[in-house]
């Protein structure tokens, strides 16, 4: 397929996934706000940190109030990672590859855009913010499901998977990083209900709470790290995401797994191997923040290798 088209479907998927993750993080915080009222201060500041737009936010807003953070993360077009910016970017990419994606899928993406940019969107958030962010998540799933059921599972489809899973791996690691930093237990906090509620909220923001319970039972720091970084079956864990991305990458090229024919396969293969042979005790001992920083650096390298291998070929 055309390099330009491959690049567009890849980014289209990444942006949809990014919009979904913003909605997840905000949606969970809205619920947390209710659970924690009277126990702890509201925590809207970390929401900005997840997306990495902290400096920009501080420059343009008068403080991390709920309203400000929601505006910044949802509607602010100057923030490239706001829901509206991501959905608009996904749609622009989709528009340039309409002949490749199915009509049904284009219809869903276009509807997504029309819905988050509708004149009444801010009103909908004011009336029922939780419902709005749930709707964003549902729409992202609708796009994904429509894609899987209407688009042929060929090269273009695998590029969408590659984009979607790499983005998700990146987002999950960011969520874990920010929350972990906040939740570093001080001696006084250990075992207090706030702690448990916050860890549960972290799991819920990845839709992982129920799956976690079935696997690990009670919430503990090590187990949450084990689950979100290393679980092989949970669809939002970093390990699961990078192995899925790897499968699609090798479907695109035809290279057998565990071998590599280009830089992208080499980089991603190394990352998968590293996750294959790591454990949460190690990660915590080495310092989780450093481990996640390392992961994000690797995600960037993989992204650059994909660009060089497929999008800038000749």
């Amino acid at each position: 397929m055309l390099s330009r088209v491959a690049e567009s479907v890849y980014w289209m998927s990444r942006y949809i996934e990014r919009a979904e993750n913003v909605a997840r993080v905000v949606g969970v915080n809205l619920k947390l706000e209710i659970d924690l009222s009277g126990i702890a201060e509201e925590q809207w500041d970390p929401m900005v940190q997840v997306g990495g737009g902290h400096a920009d936010f501080r420059g343009r807003y008068d403080g991390p109030s709920r309203a400000n953070v929601i505006e910044f993360l949802t509607f602010d077009r100057q923030n490239p990672n706001s829901v509206v910016s991501c959905v608009a970017a996904a749609r622009e990419n989709a528009r340039t590859v309409r002949e490749i994606i199915s009509s049904e899928m284009w219809g869903e993406i276009n509807d997504f855009y029309l819905s988050v940019t509708a004149p009444d969107a801010r009103d909908r958030v004011r009336r029922d913010a939780a419902e709005f962010f749930q709707q964003v998540q549902r729409t992202s799933h609708l796009v994904e499901g429509t894609k899987n059921e209407t688009m042929e599972h060929g090269e273009a489809w695998h590029f969408t998977r590659l984009g979607r899973y790499l983005e998700r791996a990146d987002q999950t690691s960011r969520i874990l990083d920010v929350k972990y930093f906040l939740l570093l237990p001080s001696a006084a906090d250990v075992g207090r209900p706030v702690d448990d509620i916050q860890w549960s909220a972290l799991l819920r923001s990845t839709s992982g709470f129920e799956a976690y319970r079935r696997t690990f039972g009670l919430v503990s720091r090590e187990s949450v790290v084990a689950f979100l970084l290393f679980d092989r079956q949970f669809p939002r864990s970093v390990h699961h995401c990078v192995t899925r991305a790897q499968v699609s990458l090798h479907e695109i090229t035809g290279t057998p797994l565990r071998r590599f024919g280009n830089e992208a396969e080499q980089q991603l293969g190394r990352l998968v191997a590293e996750l294959d042979y790591s454990d949460p005790g190690d990660a915590i001992a080495r310092g989780l923040h450093q481990v996640i920083d390392g992961l994000q650096h690797r995600f960037n390298q993989v992204g650059e290798a994909i660009t060089a291998t497929f999008f800038r070929v000749v």
């Binding site: 055309l2 491959a6 999008f311 070929v313």
Partner: peptide, 8 residues
């Protein structure tokens, strides 16, 4: 030629 993910 078209520039594709597999070359020209």
């Amino acid at each position: 030629n078209m520039r594709t993910t597999r070359g020209l």
